[in-house]
Simulated scan of single mutants.
Amino acid sequence: MTIVQLEYIVAVDTYRSFGIAAEKCFITQPTMSMQVQKLEEDLGVILFDRSKQPVVPTEIGVEILEQARVALKEGYKIKELISNKKGAVEGELKIGIIPTLAPYLMPGVISAFMDKYPKLQLIIWEYTTEQIIQELKNGLLDCGILSTPVKDKSLHENPLFYECFVAYLSKSSPLIAKKNLSTQDIDLDDLWLLNEGHCMRNQILNMCNRDRSDQLKPFEYNTDSVETLKRMVDMNRGITLLPELSMAGFSVKQLDRVRYFRSPGPSREISIVTHRNFLKKRLISILEQEIMLAVPKRMQNNKKKQILDIY
């Protein structure tokens, strides 16, 4: 029985598929099946019921998988202790980040890591909040960078900064005449929003605290991209709400169509989220430091801000 074999059976249990587990472990499916079968032969028990789709662990398999996760976690702790003792910043850090934040925060953070910590590999996925939470619970991510609070007792939230939402107006918007806005100024029927499933969409709807009218619109556009929302406002009518960091690179003309909200302005809390029993504490602490260096200091306190709920 080897550590690698334990990693493989945990992967099969996590994804309930030999094919997907093999892909995630960067091996072929025949190799995955052979290694799991060899472990079963060594232990003298069947770990998975392969007759079912998706595959499920057997009764004894459930107990063995629970211990396999414990053994892997303890093994990772040993590696972490040795790395910390050496003072080395190396290994890999698996990060999930929401797509409404990733393109505006991560390029600078990644650049800093490449310069300062060449032996540390960052593996980053853009996921929705729900995906990040699930991957953290399954042990597939070391940490997530997302809007909080998520209100899950199995997770630990470490708030980092507070990002304002701003209104981005089309040239024809009647709100263009106003210097600052209130949430009551926002007409949901004129608002371009992200798809359902994005926490930013929920935050904006919670901020407006009103429902859209039943009036039939000529079309409905579904997008996962903040950049698409910007373009829709540029080329069409209406407004959208943007996270403040997404304004980087705006032209003077675009900045003229940005409006802030009256204090306390609507904001989102951005945190590093980990499982309660998380590992790689030192690497995550370094990630936190680099994020704090990448965002303006005025974002690092929540005074005069209305923190929006993501649910």
Rank of each mutant, 00 (worst) to 15 (best):
L287A: 06
T148K: 10
P218M: 01
M32H: 08
I20R: 08
T28Y: 12
Q67S: 05
D187G: 05
S33W: 03
K297I: 14
I82N: 13
I20L: 15
G75R: 13
I270E: 07
D234W: 05
K171C: 00
D42F: 04
R201E: 00
E74A: 12
R237M: 05
V4D: 12
D115L: 13
G19Q: 00
L283G: 07
S246V: 15
R262Y: 03
I60F: 06
P218I: 07
M247A: 04
T274I: 03
V12T: 05
I95T: 02
P266F: 02
D190S: 13
S111T: 14
N138E: 12
G96W: 02
A294D: 02
P266V: 07
N277M: 10
L47E: 02
G19M: 01
N277I: 04
L175Y: 02
I132T: 02
I27C: 09
R231E: 14
L241I: 02
I186E: 00
R201Q: 07
Q29K: 14
K171D: 11
L81P: 08
M232D: 05
E196C: 04
E66F: 09
I27S: 11
L47G: 03
D214P: 01
L136R: 00
I270Y: 11
E40K: 14
L43H: 05
I186K: 06
E290D: 04
S111A: 11
Q300W: 04
K151L: 12
V10W: 07
E130V: 12
I132D: 01
R237W: 11
G139P: 06
V233R: 05
Y221K: 11
I284Q: 08
E92F: 11
L93G: 10
D152R: 14
L293Y: 01
F26P: 00
E23S: 13
I132P: 09
M299H: 02
V233C: 09
Y260H: 15
N158P: 00
P264I: 10
Q121E: 11
L229G: 00
P174T: 07
G44Y: 05
N206I: 01
Q134C: 05
R210V: 07
S154T: 15
P296C: 10
T240R: 09
A68C: 11
N209S: 10
K303M: 14
T228K: 12
T28C: 07
I20T: 09
K304S: 15
T58R: 04
L245E: 05
H156M: 11
D185I: 04
T274N: 06
L122P: 07
R298C: 09
C25A: 13
K304V: 15
P174C: 07
I9L: 15
V258C: 14
T58V: 08
I272G: 07
V62K: 03
K178F: 04
M299A: 07
I145S: 01
I239N: 06
V62E: 14
I20N: 00
L146A: 08
I97T: 12
P264D: 09
S251P: 14
Y162A: 06
K304Y: 14
E7C: 11
G108I: 02
L43M: 15
Q121M: 11
T58F: 08
K119Y: 09
E196L: 02
